[in-house]
């Protein structure tokens, strides 16, 4: 069947302006839900970047008791060099540690006075072969059992904590986004139903003179799609502003650690694309369901 594009465009346009308050409500709900989704996506991409960034920096530190017996120190050293899981390890001597200590506390001489060179603990810097944090932690736990080991500290431990937190935040936002998307779907469904109710006489005539279901349906589905896409457009603006705010904060506070949260143009483009697509699909489908149910009733 031939669709008259000009007719469909005219009808869709009229539908959009026919009920502005409901239309605006729909657009705003879509915008809010997709902004949440977009924020969750920002966090996810940021976390993924964070993991990549610290994947190469997974060394851990084995602190040795200050009064360690020489044979225990030798045992630790031998175990490390014999291990197939370790790519490199280095023993940092008491003199080196003390030098570092002096450097670190040079502003506070009182602290320096309290500590004598033979009281500072020494440590091994260990670089494992397998960069996965869980594997590294398992490895570290093994060394913790060795006599003379005071503590095992992971460079990546605080990354993991941050990671856990951001993951949780992203999950919470995703859940909120899903609920919010549900709300916008329902609202859009109702908008289209209201629009159809307002035009029930026209639809009745259309059916009587032999318009196909698709001909009746399409303007309403396009209306939903456009509302969804406009809502998504607002959410893209909100997400871009959010990202700009984050980057500004990161730069101002010199938070190099979180630099991966400053998303690249291509990441932002991809997120924007997904948001617009989601908005359009939500709009198209929810109005499609509303129209089908109305026409089948």
């Amino acid at each position: 069947m031939a669709f008259r594009a000009d007719y469909i465009a005219k009808e869709t346009g009229q539908n959009l302006v026919r009920n502005p308050s409901l239309g605006i409500a729909t657009v705003l709900t879509v915008a809010v839900s997709l902004t949440l989704l977009g924020a969750a996506m920002l966090v996810r991409v940021g976390v993924a970047g964070l993991n990549d960034r610290f994947r190469d920096d997974v060394e851990f530190i084995i602190w040795v008791d200050p009064d360690v017996a020489p044979e225990h120190l030798a045992l630790i050293e031998d175990t490390l060099s014999a291990s197939a899981s370790i790519s490199d390890s280095r023993y940092v001597t008491r003199e080196e540690v003390f030098a570092e200590f002096q450097q670190y506390y040079k502003e506070t001489p009182t602290v320096l006075e309290l500590v004598k060179p033979d009281e500072v603990p020494t440590y091994f810097e260990v670089v494992p072969i397998e960069p996965d944090l869980a594997v590294v932690q398992a490895l570290g736990a093994e060394y913790r059992q060795l006599p003379g080991v005071f503590k095992v500290q992971y460079a990546a431990e605080y990354i993991k904590k941050l990671n856990d937190f951001t993951r949780l935040a992203s999950r919470v936002m995703m859940i909120a986004a899903v609920f919010s998307a549900g709300a916008s779907t329902m609202l859009m469904y109702n908008t289209i139903r209201t629009a159809m109710f307002a035009r029930r006489r026209e639809i009745e005539v259309m059916r009587l003179v032999g318009a196909t279901s698709w001909f009746i349906r399409l303007p309403f589905m396009l209306e939903g799609m456009i509302q969804g896409a406009i809502g998504a457009g607002f959410s893209v603006v909100a997400v871009l502003l959010l990202n700009r705010g984050i980057s500004k904060q990161l730069n101002q506070n010199d938070l190099k650690l979180l630099a991966s949260f400053d998303l690249s143009q291509s990441d932002l483009l991809a997120i924007s694309g997904w948001l617009v697509l989601s908005g359009a699909v939500i709009g198209f489908l929810s109005s499609g369901i509303a129209v089908t149910r109305y026409l089948d009733a």
């Binding site: 069947m1 031939a2 009745e204 005539v205 259309m206 003179v209 032999g210 009746i216």
Partner: peptide
């Protein structure tokens, strides 16, 4: 009658042809 009140006589009649995809 079931006429569409927001359309003129011409538009009401044209409507029957428009919605079945008849060319202009």
């Amino acid at each position: 009658y079931k006429l569409l009140q927001n359309k003129t006589v011409n538009e009401n009649v044209s409507f029957a042809l428009e919605v079945i995809g008849r060319p202009r």
